[in-house]
Design a protein around this nucleic acid. Sequence first.
DNA 1: GTGAAAGCGCTAACAC
DNA 2: GTGTTAGCGCTTTCAC
Lengths: 352, 352
Amino acid sequence: MSNPEASSRRPRRPTIRDVSRLSGVSHMTVSRVISTPDRVAPATRERVLEAITSLGYVPDRAAGSLSSRRSGFVALILPTLNNANFAIVARGLSEVLHRQAYQLLIAYDDYDLAAEESQLTQLLARRPEAIVLTGAVHRPGTVQKLAAAGVPVVEISDLPARPIQHAVGFSNEEVGRIAARYFIERGFAHIGAIGSRCVGDKGDYRGDTRLRGFEAELRAGGRSLDLVCRYGSAPVSFGHGAMAIGRLLDQNPDVDAVFAVSDLSAVGVVMECQRRGVLVPDDLSVMGFGDFEIGREINPALTTIHVDFYALGQRVGEHLTERALVDCNVDAVSLDVGLRIIERSSVKGKVR
Amino acid sequence: MSNPEASSRRPRRPTIRDVSRLSGVSHMTVSRVISTPDRVAPATRERVLEAITSLGYVPDRAAGSLSSRRSGFVALILPTLNNANFAIVARGLSEVLHRQAYQLLIAYDDYDLAAEESQLTQLLARRPEAIVLTGAVHRPGTVQKLAAAGVPVVEISDLPARPIQHAVGFSNEEVGRIAARYFIERGFAHIGAIGSRCVGDKGDYRGDTRLRGFEAELRAGGRSLDLVCRYGSAPVSFGHGAMAIGRLLDQNPDVDAVFAVSDLSAVGVVMECQRRGVLVPDDLSVMGFGDFEIGREINPALTTIHVDFYALGQRVGEHLTERALVDCNVDAVSLDVGLRIIERSSVKGKVR
DNA sequence: GTGAAAGCGCTAACAC
DNA sequence: GTGTTAGCGCTTTCAC
């Protein structure tokens, strides 16, 4: 006959007191063995360590956090997990933080500022010691909660004109400007661009900033903005690029150069051109952004603008662990990780 | 003159007691307003809610966890974040869990079983209420820790012959078998495959299972295994496919059909063939796995085997929230989410 | 080098 | 419907 009470109860995990009892020391000594082993006599330490192993003791960090007022969490809010460059930021950051025994608490908002705010609220309940989020545009409530959190805040992937606090990124406007100048210098006559639309809380605001930089430079060069096309909503990907260039070509068959806010769209452009018999780069030159791996592999290989997102993540981690988390009075820092044009074969007529 | 003591101290976040003082009730009433609002008189509730808003109070879940013995965390260990299909599993799971106020604690191990074990140890300190990890192969220490955790464990992305507990996935062996049969039925003479190598703790064990299923079926059909090539190490991607098919073509120019353990490799194969003037599918038929978006966009579009990874993530979430997390005596469940061949244009001679 | 006491901010349990 | 008490499992602080 089964005992429902016993069988439905889960075995309790061992606590620090179980370890102390087994090793015949106080629970404080156990705590020291874990956090400051050199302050414990070697013999005692060994005994405690054995007890820890034999019980399979794992300290409860919720209890530790409560007591020490240090959660060991760093919160990260990304637009999406499903983007190689954001994933790589998370990797770089996570690697650096791990070394200092911090744990990354990752959330994503699907390019929705309202979701960003509600994710932040969830994360705040875990008392992160720092908050990292993609920069520039937020709801007022987000900004206010960030300030009230009283922990370092780092905006990434853009360099806001008026950052909340720290920023590690690059100028998305400059990305667009560089792309436009690149086309203008090479004498293209009908220069276009493709991106997505931002509506209210939803959209890729950094992508849109790239598009605005592109437009600003076209304007400065006395060019028309008619071929700059905002199509669909974020996130963009291969299909987006294919659809958008399809529309653009249908309406303006004379377009001879196009900048896509992401390599993913740019690859879609190249694929759609293959299907339509439009030759890249002879009929249409294409430039992307983000230097995704697929851009290196397609034919022709994609000319793009590269940002070292892995280093970006690492920089954020280093700035946090070396400065912002150590001294809460450090000055707000804006760090530019830079850009690099990668010239491959999707743009006609390289200038020497 | 600045006061270093005051300026270096961070403003303390308001606690439940601050809210109770401001609203003139006991802290327990505040707690009830948050967790069971209907058990509080409407007038009291309003007053408390106002105090919460005006103070910007956010409950500390570490304290709540400690007291309620429920962390609200579900741990997820993935081989990598930088893979669309794993990212989409995380999305599906996260969405379902969020509705029940669970939070996902994500870690990745870079296809390294030793890292999987150490990540698990970190996660265990947060007392997750369930653990989800990619299935089939683990270190003994991992299995032992999982058992000691005393919480539901779900293996995903494969259906192990001897699961630790629950499993939600599909048969990777069957994936390989289907691919081999597909080629054999269509009369290919020189059938190959490409994947990566597993060495010790490191490697893509699910990819290797697909390759072994492929080999088993080739053997059953009396074919040679000489063209099954394990090249490099996980994770595979476009460059991997390009390199691997380069070697295979150099050594065996007569290969007429190749299965890649991932669409990412398969796309690399197609791109390398374009560069070499090898026509796909006329000279070489290519089949992938995973139905990544890029496979739909390339020319020719990629024939592949599709798994609904989003649904997989959701299923895990539903099984957890509806069953395993509710009643810790539920029987271990293995759930097959199934497979589907997507016939596109990269394989010659479709059979009707 | 080690231990005892207090308390982190909540919730469970029970009283009224 | 609301309050009181106790305690979750640790770390901080201070005593020895």
